[in-house]
Design a protein around this nucleic acid. Sequence first.
DNA 1: TGCAGATCTGACGGTGTGTCAGATCCTAGG
DNA 2: CCTAGGATCTGACACACCGTCAGATCTGCA
Lengths: 237, 237
Amino acid sequence: MVPPPRVAAEPEPSEDAADAAAPDEDELRASDGRVPGRRGRATRQRLLDCTRAMLATTAYRDVKVIDIAREAGTSPATFYQYFADVEAAVLVLAEDVAREAAHLSAIVEDGDWDEASAPATAAALVDGFLRFWDDNRPVLRVMDLATDEGDDRFRKIRVGFLNDITRALAEVAQAAVVAKRLPKGTDPMATAGVLVSMLAHVAAHQYGFEFWGIRTKHLRATMVRQLAWGITGHLPD
Amino acid sequence: MVPPPRVAAEPEPSEDAADAAAPDEDELRASDGRVPGRRGRATRQRLLDCTRAMLATTAYRDVKVIDIAREAGTSPATFYQYFADVEAAVLVLAEDVAREAAHLSAIVEDGDWDEASAPATAAALVDGFLRFWDDNRPVLRVMDLATDEGDDRFRKIRVGFLNDITRALAEVAQAAVVAKRLPKGTDPMATAGVLVSMLAHVAAHQYGFEFWGIRTKHLRATMVRQLAWGITGHLPD
DNA sequence: TGCAGATCTGACGGTGTGTCAGATCCTAGG
DNA sequence: CCTAGGATCTGACACACCGTCAGATCTGCA
């Protein structure tokens, strides 16, 4: 369950300069401790893509290394060159997803939360959540599971990306407390955290709602209302 | 992924009368289609208990039939006599958990939701959720995963048990809409559904919050506030 | 062109799966 | 008390996946 310690080794600047395609992953190591070159990185990426695809079509429990490798046109041994196990590959996917989530906190930070604008800003955030979960559901659900199972590597990623949004919302709530629109004892961080939970869970189970007759339109409106009021204290409508 | 069709067979009334210990599970069949007797049911239960225990200590992905069987002091072949696979056993555990959840909807139905009582009733429901998730976390997280993966057998159970609570809350919301404490367009069911989502998700990730410094006390207060307002339209405090 | 890594894989021992046929257990009826 | 016959369990097996090597193959460059 513990990530293997990264072996410290002298860098390979010639390679590094050659392909600056990798954004900030210059810490990559294969299982044998060497820094992969162009070909290696391509294989690794192919394996990641296939893992993501697999996750979208197969129950997590049934995702096998051999299937991923076959799909990627390579052998299981190659998979193990880059990842300790399936979980490790998913962890990398989770990191990617978390990076993509940055635009969600931007919505909170860049939006206006005064009485007139709050509903629209809240709506933008709600839509962002729904869309984001739609795009990344397979990875996010494994992330949720692993976090709940006590895996700290996943928890850190999850907390990290939700944290940015939560902090941003907490600032808004804090302002509302100061302005006495929210009751004095209100904990801004707890408020923001609970609302982010609401957003995350509804987004995750969106289709579960339709299943029992709730239209997405109403769902969305309710989320917006609950969020806007909870965070600003402005009564909606 | 599809449950095996139950083979229709003539019942065994003599056995049935002998041990009425089983509440409503008289539809039980072993893999070979026969109705298990006392000994069989005991073995089955032992396997279920071990499955639950396993789930509490081991990542779902790593829960193996052979481990469950070993733990139960029996052989894998016996496990397969009662369950098609690990998932099938967890499904039964999920049904049990859902049955236990009945008391949560009772809190909503039996409680008062007038302005004076709403916070206390909401608090009781919040505590019920937190406690319930605490007691059944391992099964509930697998239920969430399977539901999200599109498994309808789990979805039905999940929806079924949350449905009772949601319906009960929706009635309260409906009353608030009629009384014009909630805006006219409000969909009571969607409102209740979103709030139940909030409760479920916060309860599921309770310890994730503590991880980043939010005290359970504040978390609870926020949930209560959000729930009481959202469902009754009464401003708290 | 040929060498020195870099990358990949065949092959293998180990473990888990799922399914029989038959062994073992239990109990009702003699 | 004994025994037949159904209820229950399991050894054994064929198959699949895991995880790890040593060595085969590929690639870029001197």
